[in-house]
Each structure stands twice: as structure tokens, then as C-alpha cells.
Amino acid sequence: MATTATEICAPDRRARRGSLLRRRLFDLVGWGSSALALLLLGGAMLWILGVVFLRGLSALSPTILTHVTEGYGGGLLNAIEGTAVLALGGVLLAAVPGLAAGIYLAEFDAGRLAPFIRFLADVLVGVPSIVIGYFGYVTLVVDLGWKFSVAAGSLALAIISLPYICRTTEMALRQVPRALRESAYALGAGDARVVLGICLPAALPGILTGILLALAISVGETAPLLYTAGWSNYLWTGHLTNEPIGYLTYAIWAFITEPFSSAHALAYAAALLVTLFVLIISILSRTILEGWRRRSPWERPAL
């Protein structure tokens, strides 16, 4: 009994068998190559993580976590502290403008300003971080006289993180159903109360994801910091300008090319710490998002 398209359309048994064979082959090749693609990616991922973790773990020692850098050896305490200061500084600086922009784009999207800001934010995402670093060097470090400093480094990181926080805030706020807003307005609440009191709390997981993303990006950046934060072998003394600061990604870049094994150990350990931190944040933000999606009784987020 002819049931499939092949069987209906093919005139005779041999033709049917031939084209069936071709289709099976196509299927095999198709699934095979897509499986291969996934395996390639998975394999590469395992290779990178393997190198970073194995060499990083063997290089990690209590000294590295408790001492500051001395020349080609010593530890990474100054770099760890520096990364924390710079990343938190960058996120703090970017949080308010980013949130404000996201709120404006999601809630008050009438007229031409909102699409314009959205376009500019999308463009800013694509600007290479070295361009931002170069800009920071010429204006903040040299022209304004801040020299290598926490201020310059954090500001550069903030500019990089701004569009991410803006976009994720906007997307998170758009998931909040209109009914919630309308009922709040109907009860007489003003703009501020509706947004800050109702919508933000409802969209908090999504917003948090954006902040975590900005944190991860800030921890992993190197090029802009090379020309804004400089490098220091010492712990931060609290000065925001006129004093450089260390950061883990510098250790990775500068020490791996030195022909000294103590330098290599620092580089691997720094790579391990940075990668670990970034991976934990990515998994954390994914978990938050998944939990939010599953728990919310509203429509499934589209993108």
C-alpha cells in the first residue's frame, strides 16, 4: 500500500528503492556532519578547558593566592584584588545609566528618542574594546591627567558594559505582562512607582543576568585595561587616579611569553582563575534565567 510521498510518486519499485536509498544517504550524511560539528565544538571546548584547568591547577599554590607579584614570580594577590576592584567599579558605574536606558526603552518607547538610543546601544556593543581603550588612554589617562588609574580602567569597562546592561534590562522588562502595569496605573500609581515598585522586581532575574554578564565581560577584558589601568605589583591603596592597578588578564598576556617557568605558572594560574570565574557566572546566570522561565506563569520569552 503506497503511503509515503516517495511511494506515491515513484513509478516503479526500482526507482522507489533508488530514491529511498538516496534519501537515507542524505539523512546519514546530514546527521553525521551535524553530529561531527557538535563533536568538534565539544572537543575544542574540552581541549581549552583541559589545558587551562590542568596547567592552572598544577600552577596554583597557596603562595599565588596570598602574595603579590614580584618580577617574574611571586603571587597574584594584587591582580586578583585589582580585577575585583576594576570589574565592580565598571559594573557600578554602568548600572545606573544602563538600567535607566533599559527602563526608558522598555516602558516609554514612544517617539523617536527610544529607537535612536536602542540603535546606538546596539552599535556600541559592536565597537571593539581596543578602540574604547585607546579613547580612554588619550582622553582620560593623558589629557585629563588621571594617568594609569582605577578611574580610567573602570570607566573604560563601564562603557563596554553599558549596552549589555541596557539591552538585557529592556528585554527583561518587556517580558513583564502589560496587565500588571495597567492595573498599577489604574490604581493611581505614578511612573516611578510602577516601574521601580512593580516592573523592576518582576524582571529582576533578567536584569541580574545582565549585570552578571557585564561582570563576566569586565573580568575577561584585557586590551582596554592595558592602556587605562596599567599594571601594579602592589595592592590597591585606594587612590582612584594617578595610581595603576594590577589585573589577572595582564598576568596571562604578559607572563606567558617570558621564558621563565615561574612566569608561566603565574599566567596559567591567572587563566584558571579568570576562566573559572567567567564559567561560574555564565552557569549562574543561565540557572537564574531558567528558574525564572519555569516559575513565571507568563508567556515564554520569545528570544
Binding site: 567599579g89 557600578l92 558605574l93 545606573v96 588621571w146 578611574a151 596599567g230 602592589y234 591603596t237 585606594g238 587612590h239 582612584l240 587616579t241 594617578n242 595610581e243 595603576p244
Partner: peptide, 25 residues
């Protein structure tokens, strides 16, 4: 942010500092 801003303006440290070391770069 206010404290940080003030700190940036005066280049004084908002955190308690150890006795001033000379920092040569």
C-alpha cells in the same frame, strides 16, 4: 558614587591608607 567622585576629584583615598609610601613606577 559620591564618595568615589569626591575621591577622584581630590585624588585622596576614600579608604584608610597605610603610612604614605613613596611609589616609584
Amino acid at each position: 558614587l559620591a564618595v568615589a567622585g569626591k575621591g577622584a576629584m581630590s585624588s585622596a583615598s576614600p579608604l584608610p591608607t597605610p603610612p604614605a609610601d613613596i611609589n616609584i613606577l
